[in-house]
Nucleic acid binder design. Structure first.
Lengths: 227, 227
DNA sequence: CCACATTTGTACGTATGTATC
DNA sequence: CGATACATACGTACAAATGTG
């Protein structure tokens, strides 16, 4: 039997993108149209499109069409979940990657940040100190990443947050008072040193922050093992 | 029509993993067996399995069976390629992420590396200086990541190398002599400072190394735009 | 080395459900 | 409401790789 028909679909779409005939957000030809153009059945077209969808290249909307997507983070998060499940990685590893991304973003931010952006961080921090919610904590770190302005770091960071988020929530809501105070303290130092352009001191604060989380993860894992 | 049958397949496999009945490398029940167990057609089973395969959770071997996999790097690399193609990220972004990962790995390595591991780096560096091949350059950076010992960083790093590799090859083989000399110089300093446990100096060398690549990427992009 | 059963790979057709316009 | 388009599921058939006897 002739093969690779459904991969022809992937190649066909890729060509359309490379030739500039398709841009993010654009609607693809209908599945039946692709079926006729490529001389394959609609089922085969769907095989190809689903492969692209699983990679986050396109998004299918029932009753409307298939659209070129430009956000692939969701699928990265799913993969990370399975990697955790399979024991290929652990929460410490997630935390290390977050630390690496935040340090790099911070270094960029310290060279580019404006007073307005620093003010924005203070506002988030004030809300965090008032509400003590995990959402605001995530918003704070997201803001740092955004100051770095790198889209890939944002995508990876979002996926990592998605995986480790519930753990952070648990630490902040059910953890010791010490943990919360130290978290808020390192946050404040991060903003202060950013304002003063003291990159080494700021990176030290970030390092301290993630060391605290690292310790907390280790403690949590120890508890889990004994239960 | 009743729906989500193929997602039941994903859930079923996930349960098998969670319950410890399936470990990485294990063979899944045959598609026909799953078909009977879950009361769905083989095509539906394949829909579910292919979804897992596209996420790097399992690997299908024709004539043999479906095996639980524990490497999803390839999937990540494919996604990155499309993100580049769609303009969601660029090579500068790839380079920034590599820099972040290598800096973090280096910081860990400087606390844990043994004289034997440092010797291993020198050996790779000697080969690189003799052959001046891009493969050895990648081997050098891989070795640094490995010293960090974090599996997630290794996975992401591999995917990034897969995407940016051809560009590095081009820089090293067709670039100016200056570029090659500076690359070799920063490499040597990275090893020396690792040996001397001088973390700040080492990180500065890495920063310098990636700044050089960054400049080269900018130059390359400028050339492409004029062509 | 060959023959064979098993298993996955690919493709097709068909039918029906459901969201969009 | 109807037309369109995607979502899901089933069945069938044959190709190709694997493993075994």
């Amino acid at each position: 039997m002739e093969e690779d028909r459904y991969q022809d679909v992937c190649t066909y779409v890729r060509r359309l993108i490379e030739q500039g005939q398709l841009r993010p957000g654009d609607r693809l030809p209908t599945e039946r149209a692709l079926s006729q153009d490529l001389g394959v059945s609609r089922g085969t077209v769907r095989d190809g499109l689903r492969l692209l969808e699983s990679m986050g290249v396109l998004e299918s909307r029932q009753g409307s069409g298939n659209y070129l997507s430009n956000h692939m983070g969701q699928y990265l998060a799913q993969s990370l979940h399975f990697m955790l499940l399979l024991g290929e990685i652990d929460y410490q590893s997630i935390n290390r990657m977050r630390r690496a991304i935040e340090l790099q973003s911070y270094r960029i931010a310290i060279q580019t940040s404006t007073p307005e952006q620093v003010q924005g961080l203070w506002r988030i921090q004030e809300e965090l100190e008032r509400t003590r919610s995990a959402e605001k904590d995530e918003a704070f770190h997201d803001a740092i990443i955004d100051l770095g302005g790198d889209p890939l770091m944002r995508i990876v960071s979002d996926a990592l947050s998605d995986v480790i988020g519930h753990l952070i929530t648990q630490f902040l809501t059910r953890g010791a008072q010490d943990l919360l105070h130290q978290t808020l303290d390192t946050h404040r130092r991060m903003i202060e040193y950013l304002e003063q352009r003291r990159v080494d001191a700021g990176c030290a604060a970030i390092t301290r922050h993630y060391d605290i989380i690292d310790t907390e993860i280790a403690r949590w894992q120890a508890e889990r093992r004994t239960i």
